[in-house]
Write a protein that binds this DNA or RNA. Structure first.
Lengths: 414, 414
DNA sequence: AGGCTTACTTCAAGCCGTGATTTAACGTGT
DNA sequence: ACACGTTAAATCACGGCTTGAAGTAAGCCT
């Protein structure tokens, strides 16, 4: 049933450019020879395509490799300064805007705490636009070299029509009370840069896949647990989105039908058993949400000290987490499961053995044997990095197309 | 991270052939004009490619459409008799082999009940090969026109290296006690036809997607419940397989951690709450497995008659089923959920309203609003049809390539 | 019979990847 | 120094693809 659209002969070139660019980007400096071996393209094509990329400035030569009797191979790489990316994290307490070069080195960042207006949409939009202007000004980077702005938000993101260049993006979030917020349109009014918006947990997952514990896997699930619980599913090397890009809402999987009440209103959600908010609340001390991280750390310390209530609470959480991971294994059959998120990283070292054991007990033998369960390697700061991978991904897919900015009356109109 | 391999200019033609063939196959007789509009290809290319397909006998002209003042359009279709397909259902009590034409009209079928040897592998293989020979003999169909044999089996199927033409296929099943059974190799020894093997529930799901309640959906989950519970996930119009093609094992999702014991050995599996075997057993009457269908029918009749134990049992099952469907909605974000399988079809009319209600209560609002929950339209006999879609799908993907049979010393050797 | 409309076919033009050939840039041995 | 072998990269003819324009076929209407 899958039908890819019309293909013309020029799409071949786009594909070749994309393949070579990706390879050079991820697998560091490579020679034309190696590119040929890896990509399967003929030497002639490599020469031709690389010539184009060199002329476009998307690839540069960087030294050569010693030969043993023949002409030395010239190494090629993607010049990190050729283009830039912006990543935005709309978090629970602040808005963070960061400017990166192509190698995702952070050149500047701007943090603005959310004022008492909370997640008022106009306020958030204003902070994003201010931060964007700020990092551009501070670094003096030409906006024309910015490939796009990636934004990670809490909640479910509806992508809208891609032809509208992000202007059709709508966000729904039960936790920060955003109901069909037209974030794309609002941001579009303040910048001409290409826009990309996705769920913050998903962007963090993307970051783990590209630069963290998920590297190299083609089928993986990044389980993110923090205050709430989410997941980012990767299938065949690409984000699994579903019909309206809300796939992977793992936190509200039922682990105990009719069980504990979750903040989503239903009973028995995973999040109500292993979410940081739920754990801290059940432990009974400091249910002040601003002190959630401190509360969880205290719970962990108590457990390490042998306090039996804490030990039991964490043991139960590990069992539920393992069981829910077993569901992921049965349903998605990944080769790797990565546990990330601030709470995951905090509790992970203590819980991991029990979680692995529970997953083995609850999952089917065969798919469980194909899966490794690991801890994430990137902290929660990586949300901005992940957000920046959104425009980067499109850049690589398109074979290195530098998107033009929209003039007035462009496709954003309406 | 997705990199599709090298593409040469000839792959374009393969793609065009595939697109047009698919369109003609599914959307009935079409003219070249309409094909052009739908596929986006230019009139020249259509003419060219259709000319090839006509010469190959993969497409034929079938009448024309009245014009209003111009040259009439000539209608094209895929001739149903041009090639044949074999579908095999290795069921719980019998092995069924059916021969189809391209339109999936059943030309002949052969049923062999499993003897007391049960699911002894050699016995099953023998029945498949016997049935295959039988349907070919009875219809007089030339084996060279058979595109392949699709087999639906209980259990998880490891696809092995496609270059070995199915000889690398291995089956694991905890229920019929098959542990790493080299079904591909065993069948390969008895036939030269291309082999395709997949889980029976998955092939049934495929049939629902192509010809049943799933038609037209790009993102769907076909939930199959019979004696056990399974699911077939479709994403972007294609089967979601996961790393080792065992994705979609929904029956052992945990709905009640620490709850009822499941036949898989774990506690709290969905199957232990809504599987037909579990329901019949819990109802307490006739736990004889051979009378499972009669038992479930009796349970349903009792509930319809108002017997409170039966009513409560089914109400509980509906709630668990709805909750588990909510998990599917949250995780996969499908546009449609189809409930199939013999037990699903039997209980469906009574349970559906309660299931929908429970799903709404347990799923997140936004993805739930995108999803419709429907009953399947195909009976369990459709497993053979679904199995036959496996070689058919490959045929359409390849743009109408008739696979040659393997000679001795072919790639199957070793 | 002539004109009009629509469906289909043919053909030159522009690209693309391949694979063979040529050129470039090294180390080595004399 | 200099020819030689070796390996890397560039060049180019070739077959193949889609497009889009121009040409042909096949029916209506007057």
């Amino acid at each position: 049933m899958t039908l890819r659209g019309k293909q013309t002969v020029r799409d071949l070139r786009r594909g070749s450019r994309s393949t070579l660019l990706r390879r050079l980007y991820f697998d560091g400096p490579l020679s034309r020879q190696e590119l040929g071996r890896i990509s399967g393209l003929s030497a002639g094509s490599i020469s031709n395509v690389i010539g184009e990329l060199l002329a476009d400035g998307l690839v540069e030569e960087c030294g050569s490799v010693e030969s043993d009797g023949g002409r030395p191979r010239i190494l090629l790489q993607v010049p990190p300064g050729r283009a830039h990316l912006v990543g935005v994290d709309v978090g629970e307490t602040q808005v963070r805007v960061a400017l990166f070069d192509l190698a995702l080195t952070e050149l500047a960042a701007s943090d603005h705490p959310l004022s008492d207006k909370g997640h008022d949409v106009d306020h958030v939009v204003e902070l994003i636009l201010t931060g964007l202007a700020e990092v551009l000004r501070r670094t003096g980077v030409d906006p024309d070299t910015v490939l796009g702005v990636g934004v990670g938000v809490p909640g479910i993101v509806e992508q809208g029509d891609p032809a509208r260049r992000g202007a059709g993006i709508v966000v729904h979030s039960q936790t920060v009370d955003w109901d069909a917020v037209p974030l794309g349109r609002l941001l579009r009014a303040g910048t001409d840069l290409p826009l990309h918006v996705d769920n913050g947990a998903k962007t963090l997952g993307q970051a783990e896949m590209w630069f963290g514990a998920g590297r190299g896997a083609q089928h993986a699930v990044v389980a993110l647990f923090g205050s709430g619980v989410g997941a980012c599913v990767i299938a065949d090397g690409a984000r699994f989105r579903g019909a309206t890009s809300s796939a992977g809402e793992w936190g509200h999987t039922k682990v105990h039908v009719g069980g504990r009440l979750c903040r989503c209103g239903a009973r028995g959600c995973l999040e109500a058993y292993v979410g940081a908010e739920a754990l801290v609340e059940r432990w009974g001390k400091a249910p002040d949400s601003s002190a959630e991280k401190a509360g969880l750390a205290a719970l962990l310390a108590a457990a390490e000290a042998g306090e039996s209530a804490a030990v039991e609470l964490l043991a139960e959480a590990a069992e539920y987490l393992g069981a829910a991971i077993a569901d992921l294994i049965n349903l998605f059959n990944p080769e790797r499961i990565v546990i990330g998120g601030w709470a995951g990283l905090l509790l992970g070292p203590r819980l991991l053995p029990a979680v692995r054991e529970a997953a083995t007990a609850y999952a089917l033998r065969f798919p469980r044997a194909q899966t490794s369960i690991e801890l994430g390697r990137l902290g929660p700061d990586a949300v901005t990095v992940g957000a920046a991978t959104l425009p980067l991904s499109q850049f690589l897919d398109s074979g290195g197309e530098i998107p033009g900015r929209i003039g007035p009356g462009g496709p954003a109109a309406g």
